[in-house]
């Protein structure tokens, strides 16, 4: 199967994350990593093709050119190539603009299956796949914790507020998986060495036939007005256990009159 996995590079969770007060965008100067939730989608794509013994896994992303460094982890895991849409005019895309540019890139790939991870670790956004599915005019199954393919039908099991659903759709389809679906593999040394040599296409909006006015800030339909600190949670404390943490918890609960 030809599988396209939508991925993104996000600031490393270990670095301090801030929003720039001028542009009101996430400061992306920190070290970037592959969005951890995307690793589950890549893993599932690799497993599906390993089962059938054939196919291709292409990573599709939107972001600055330096995002390639982070996306290479997906290649090291075993994906075949990367298509990164990188364009000044795409900076600051909101959901509607991002879904437009991604869908344009995906149309070119003409994949049997488009996979998404469950959320972006930077934006907590967890709805992009539904917008992409609508633009591609393909059936959607989201929140999938178990995925099987037979012939040209895909079956996803998922959990909702009301129980467990089993949903079936004909291929081509769009599927979003949760982090419960699998345990992503670690790239092998050989995989890491080989990743650099795999095709990594950086394309512009015009390369994929996208209208620049529908991407980036021009194409976005939402804005961020103001930033403010959250309502305080009292004195938040974080301690490292040196053997006394249990006693510290008891003292804290006593102080809060919770015991």
């Amino acid at each position: 199967m030809r599988i396209a996995v939508c991925v993104k590079s996000v600031p490393d969770a270990g670095s301090a994350r801030t929003i720039e007060s001028g542009t009101k965008r996430l400061d992306r100067s920190a070290d970037a990593v592959l969005n951890p939730y995307d690793a589950n989608a890549i893993e599932e794509a690799l497993r599906l093709n390993e089962t059938s013994g054939e196919g291709e896994v292409v990573l599709v992303s939107l972001g600055p050119e330096k995002a390639l460094d982070a996306l290479r982890k997906g290649l090291a895991m075993g994906a075949d190539r990367v298509v990164l849409v990188s364009d000044e005019a795409a900076i600051g895309s909101d959901l509607v603009a991002t879904s437009y540019a991604l869908a344009k890139a995906l149309e070119r790939e003409d994949a049997d299956l488009v996979l998404f991870g469950q959320q972006g670790s930077d934006s907590d956004g967890a709805v992009l796949w539904a917008a992409v599915a609508d633009r591609l005019r393909r059936p959607l199954i989201s929140q999938v914790a178990e995925l099987t393919v037979s012939d040209s039908t895909i079956t996803g099991k998922r959990q909702t507020e009301n129980g467990y659903d089993t949903i079936q759709a004909p291929l081509p389809a769009v599927v979003a998986v949760t982090d419960a679906i699998n345990e992503p593999r670690y790239p092998s040394l050989k995989g890491i060495m080989g990743a650099k040599k795999k095709p990594q296409d950086v394309v512009s909006l015009s390369d994929i036939g996208a209208d620049a006015t529908r991407a980036g800030e021009a194409g976005s339909r939402t804005t961020v007005m103001t930033l403010s600190p959250p309502p305080p949670r009292g004195d938040s404390k974080k301690i490292e256990d040196d053997g006394s943490a249990a006693a510290a918890i008891v003292a804290f609960l006593e102080e809060k009159k919770l015991l």
Binding site: L95, S99, L128, A130, V132, D134, E161, S220
Partner: peptide, 20 residues
């Protein structure tokens, strides 16, 4: 689960902004 997918699909269909 239902409303989030519905709202995002609708945003693409109507070219409308969505905040979540």
């Amino acid at each position: 689960v239902l409303a989030s997918d519905l709202a995002a699909g609708l945003a693409a269909r109507l070219e409308a902004g969505v905040n979540w």
